[in-house]
Design a protein around this nucleic acid. Structure first.
Lengths: 231, 231
DNA sequence: AGATCTTTTTATAAAATCTTTATGTCCGAA
DNA sequence: TTCGGACATAAAGATTTTATAAAAAGATCT
């Protein structure tokens, strides 16, 4: 198995060096960047598993970098900063940071927090294509096939199916599905879900009246089952 | 209407009160528990979206509760503690905590960290499954199997079974079961219990007339026994 | 702009679940 | 042995939740 890669964005050479050595000796692959721009470029070419971002950068406001990264980078971002005032912490967390550590930090704690963050972010979808009994989903290319024939899905339909399929076998609540697919504002519009679930079933189930892949859990939510026969 | 729910596990009434008020006024649904045991039972009937766990609990070592919860509960768990020593922090994080906040904490930061945890965390780790002689319960996925085949349970049925199974071998009183599953208002509706126990037996017992897992303790309540042969 | 596709909203039918009622069983105490 | 209390179970009734079609509104593309 590959080592997790961590990108350290910090303008202070000393600290960067220290972090790099610590992380490397704990079996991480370390990438370094001394400015925000450099960091962003690095992320776009070699997306790391986690980013350690120092908020005291010179060339740009650290918060701006964070916001910018969060528009498209979804792995954990951990902030390191000398700033102890609450406003900064809250702002960073609300801008998408997963954690906020105050300098000077304790190495053991930093490592433990990194482990925790990486643990949570572990994605099961290294496999770009999932094959089930009578259908398959090619996540990389957004192509869904049923019995070898590709099925045309709208963007929302695909999001919903993709989310369900990534959690094969697990019940996902209405609220969670709505939150993930439509956003916070639509968290309670359960009817959307019903409409789209019905559409998905019409497209991927052999008998939409007796769904085998998309199961409803009344009062809770829905559950995707890739291979119904072994369930 | 459908707010995220947070379970506060803390033995200090004062702090619990404070947290509850703060969280409620920030649009969360709050559940309270004053002991680890209580917390675990609450989680089994009404799994919250996030748990705030104080590590200074009296009845059991907080770390043990954390470990126990993590065996099947996959939503975020945030630790609150007066302990500032690194060893405790590292241990908690490595035992599955998502964050660790030192008391006294700042309210704004707490709320921001909760938002962050709720936003990000949806980890599907390989969940251990409670296996019994002829049945199994996968708490994280909410799947109950009998003889390898999954059994369809309604939301209430599952809550009840989950609560019983989390107290394997122990008698739970009618009143307690009703309170936990249906709420205070239905504490005395013993007939509900009979109806649902009968339904559960029909679904998970090989011979519902001679139940081996769900035992009646006449005049007191019910007892779940995972492995009857070794009991 | 017009045609087409997609999402949102509305309406209603259907299904699933919960609650209540009715009836029967078991078991210990008088 | 009979009675009463606690329990089991089926089934009817009530309520909640879900499915689906279809219309309205909004986007997109040429």
């Amino acid at each position: 198995m590959n080592k997790p890669s961590i990108l350290v964005i910090d303008d202070e050479h000393q600290i960067r060096k220290l972090l790099t050595i610590t992380l490397q000796s704990n079996n991480y692959n370390v990438l370094e960047a001394s400015t925000g721009k450099e960091g962003i470029n690095s992320v776009s070419t070699h997306p790391p598993d986690l980013i350690l971002l120092d908020l005291g950068l010179p060339d740009e406001n650290g918060h701006a970098i964070l916001t910018h990264l969060r528009e498209w980078f979804s792995n954990p971002i951990m902030i390191i900063s000398v700033q102890t005032n609450e406003e900064d912490i809250v702002k960073a967390l609300d801008n998408g940071a997963n954690d906020y550590l105050i300098k000077p930090f304790r190495t053991g704690e930093l490592l433990a927090r990194i482990r925790s963050a990486l643990r949570g972010a572990r994605k099961d979808s290294n496999n770009p294509v999932a094959k089930f009994e009578d259908m398959s989903i090619d996540f990389a290319n957004r192509v869904v096939k049923k019995g070898g024939v590709s099925v045309k899905l709208t963007s929302t339909e695909y999001s919903l199916l993709s989310l369900l399929a990534h959690n094969d076998g697990k019940v996902l609540t209405h609220r969670y599905l709505l939150h993930q697919v439509w956003g916070v504002a639509r968290q309670n519009e359960s009817q959307y879900l019903r409409v789209f679930i019905a559409q998905l079933r019409k497209k991927i189930e052999s008998d939409p009246n007796r769904p085998r892949h998309i199961i409803t859990e009344s009062g809770i939510g829905y559950r995707f089952i890739g291979n119904p026969s072994t369930f």
